[in-house]
Design a protein around this nucleic acid. Structure first.
Lengths: 338, 338
DNA sequence: TTGAAAGCGCTAACAA
DNA sequence: TTGTTAGCGCTTTCAA
């Protein structure tokens, strides 16, 4: 038989109200009864039921996390750090893998509400914007990662992809590269990274060449290889390729190697995301690190502030990526650097 | 204001009991009232509170998942498929990242019980065996993955590592390899894989050479490279290396390449796990695939059977791994195969 | 400082 | 077929 607050109260010779106060550190209790009750709780191995307390209107100390695909390492890391921070703050997280499917999103959200979660975190690639709007209207605690919806008043944490793209390009330029190919995936993050790439070129007085920008239909290594070959075929030889994620960059490396180019001697390559892949590959990949842990911790903080009513204003947190220089980048040879 | 079963009952002109019966498809209700009530529920956008129904002793339709490290792709996949199957069966999953820390395990379990989860799934590397024993004694629904504790009566799903190791070795032998180095990590799975390796050798009439078995202190690529170098240094040249996971195998590949050996011409390499890494690397890695999805689905099934009281006997499910042949393995040259 | 009692939203016996 | 009602385990007001 599960033991309840009544058992504790009876055994300690006090009322349930007293026990409840002690559990929640409320009201004023004499040190003597407090000790007594604590002892009894210990002895009985009493665990208050969060269900009952939730029914009384208190928090469930549970949040929902909607993620498109856990098998994507980036998302898995988000999940990890969100859980980590949640745990620190006393919140459990219910994982929901949506496959970026609007219907699943719908179902999950409605389920989470039935379970009375205190708030919801949504990771990138969320499709069902209507749903988000509804939650906002209801003032349901909500925070999102990595997809800033400029038109919606939501707490969000984003990494500055624009800056990331800029940094990559700036670095390559500083190494003397002038023709820099780019291979991207067709999503919002990539767009920003491309903008940063363009801006860096412009800031150095170089007109971006559209032919050097390749958008993959799908972010696979095969596509990357394919487009890298096209880039490498162009008349005016490029000396560097920026892959908008590590996998794409690795595809480019492989394409280069297959036609006998040495990396980084004949071609510099930079990736994005600093996944495990970047250290597996040889030579190890220069790439951009997203502050995954910070991102995860930050969203949770934003969300719990809403839950606790600590915060009334909406925050858009933008975190900065960081260039991780490894072995696939090198000063350009046979060129005078101005 | 949250709308409750009372609101529905009032608006539909029936009692809450009737509404409850309709929600749960119990008792007998005239088609007319059913329709009426359903309509009202729809109109009111009524969502029953699972909290309240849980307090009445019903299920929470929530299970806990304890995993050591979500940033390990294998575990992330477990999590993904467990969530997937849970979702299909109507269960949410609360993610708990334990870092294989017995205290965290303890805290999570106690928390999960407070939240009245219906059951708990524990993934490999669980430390706190005492805790498990306690849960079993309480008949708390429990199932584990990938770590069979021969002494405990727990539903478990395991992949047959022994067979995996056997298959790898058998395949290498069939290609004519006779001296096969092995690089392993120091865990239980590896032990089994090593046993399989030994057995396959013995079955072919070859006495396993202890010097060819290397156990890494930590499962990093660096250690793997280090031990691969030692293996490659041995007087009697080996012609193949079996890395007990993909990362180790890749370390071996790199060590080989650094001393000018061609893969697979001069050395065959096989990994284990069929992670993304195995297709990134060039040549792509021959490896062993674990049926991750099956594993995930199976544990959930075992657990929910316990929860529903459908099953009273304990199951140990053993799933079979599968050799995925790619480009790092090759028939041995300059040798007559018997 | 303590306790009595109402009620959170739902379910399930039991009665009608 | 439908409704009345007593809880599930807890919190909280209010009175003592």
């Amino acid at each position: 038989m599960k033991i309840t607050i009544y058992d504790v109260a009876k055994k300690a010779g006090v009322s349930t109200a007293t026990v409840s106060k002690i559990i929640n550190n409320k009201g004023s209790i004499s040190e003597k009864t407090r000790q007594k009750v604590l002892e009894v709780m210990e002895g009985l191995q009493y665990q208050p039921s969060m269900i009952a307390s939730a029914l009384k209107g208190k928090s469930t100390y549970t949040i929902g996390l909607l993620i498109p695909d856990l098998s994507n390492p980036i998302f898995a890391e988000y999940a990890k750090y969100i859980e980590e921070r949640g745990q620190e703050l006393g919140f459990s997280v219910i994982m929901c893998n949506t496959d970026a499917n609007p219907e699943k999103e719908q179902n999950y959200i409605s389920l989470l509400k039935q379970k009375q979660v205190d708030g919801i975190i949504v990771a990138a690639r969320f499709k069902n914007i209507t749903l988000l709007k509804k939650l906002i209207k209801e003032k349901f605690p909500l925070a999102i990662i990595a997809k800033d919806l400029p038109t919606l008043p939501i707490d969000s944490v984003t990494v500055d992809d624009y800056l990331g793209g800029y940094q990559v390009t700036e670095y390559l330029l500083s190494l003397g590269h002038r023709k820099i190919g780019l291979i991207a995936e067709g999503d919002r993050s990539s767009e920003e990274r491309i903008k940063g790439y363009r801006q860096a070129l412009l800031d150095t007085g170089i007109q971006p060449v559209e032919d050097l920008i390749m958008i993959c239909d799908k972010p696979t290594r095969e596509f990357a290889k394919h487009y890298a070959e096209i880039l490498l075929d162009k008349e005016k030889g490029i000396s560097a390729i920026f892959g908008c994620n590590d996998l794409l960059a690795i595809g480019a490396m492989q394409a280069a190697r297959e036609r006998g180019l040495e990396i980084p001697d004949d071609l510099s390559v930079i990736g994005f995301d600093n996944t495990d892949l970047s250290t597996i590959v040889i030579p190890s990949l220069t790439t951009v690190q997203q502050p995954l842990r910070d991102i995860g911790h930050h969203v949770v903080d934003l969300l719990t502030e809403q839950i606790n009513g600590t915060s009334r204003t909406t925050h858009r947190v933008v975190l900065l990526p960081e260039l991780v220089i490894r072995q696939t980048t090198k000063q350009v040879e046979n060129k005078t650097i101005e």
